[in-house]
């Protein structure tokens, strides 16, 4: 990503990119999150980690790997697409669906840890809680995010946070994960209107 590019439609706006986490930072965050999960959850053998596509899925897999490294047990990982459960579908064109693949053992009675890249309005998580209802009844649901950028619109809070990033609404937080974006980094893109 280059440091600035003018917007396509409005020639009067500028985009500035500011990197706030590099690959080292991200892997340290995930190691810390794994330790927090292990400390907090009573029975680690009961954990199921569910990533929300797209970037929540590779993050979920890495978190599971970190927990495996600590506890020497394998943790089931799945993905849950929430598109069909969103309450803001009518505010944008319909988009293609992502994969939903729950682990073979299901989620009934499990400690489900939902994983997403950025927590913003909370609407994705609300949709995920609804979607999960369709597949079973977990004993406990917790939320792990790499970035909490604030601006919640619903009473939802994360249990594990990689990094708190206070942002303004004209900034965009972009989490890039090497499995998808070929690089690990967190970038804040800010668009400033030039007069």
């Amino acid at each position: 990503m280059s440091e600035s590019s003018p917007g396509a439609s409005a020639g009067s706006s500028r985009t500035n990119n500011r990197m706030v986490a590099d690959p080292e930072d991200i892997s340290r965050m995930l190691r810390r999150l794994a330790h927090q999960v292990v400390e907090n959850v009573k029975d680690v053998t009961n954990i199921v980690i569910i990533g929300i596509p797209t970037r929540g899925v590779p993050i979920a897999e890495r978190l599971a790997k970190n927990i495996r490294d600590i506890e020497k047990i394998s943790i089931p990982v799945g993905s849950l697409d929430v598109t069909l459960f969103r309450d803001d579908l009518q505010m944008r064109p319909s988009k293609a669906l992502e994969q939903t693949r729950l682990p073979a053992g299901g989620i009934d009675g499990k400690t489900v840890i939902l994983v997403d890249d950025v927590l913003f309005s909370g609407r994705t998580i609300r949709a995920a809680l609804d979607a999960m209802n369709e597949y079973g009844r977990p004993a406990v649901v917790q939320l792990a995010v790499l970035v909490d950028r604030g601006h919640r619109e619903l009473p939802i809070r994360p249990d594990y946070v990689g990094k708190n990033l206070p942002t303004s609404l004209n900034e965009k937080v972009s989490v890039q994960i090497s499995e998808i974006d070929s690089v690990d980094q967190i970038v804040i893109q800010s668009t400033t209107e030039q007069l």
Binding site: L84, Q90, M91, R92, P93, S94
Partner: peptide, 11 residues
């Protein structure tokens, strides 16, 4: 879903 799930007027 693809025809009326989203809003075509918001591009």
């Amino acid at each position: 879903y693809l025809l009326i799930g989203g809003n075509v007027s918001v591009a």
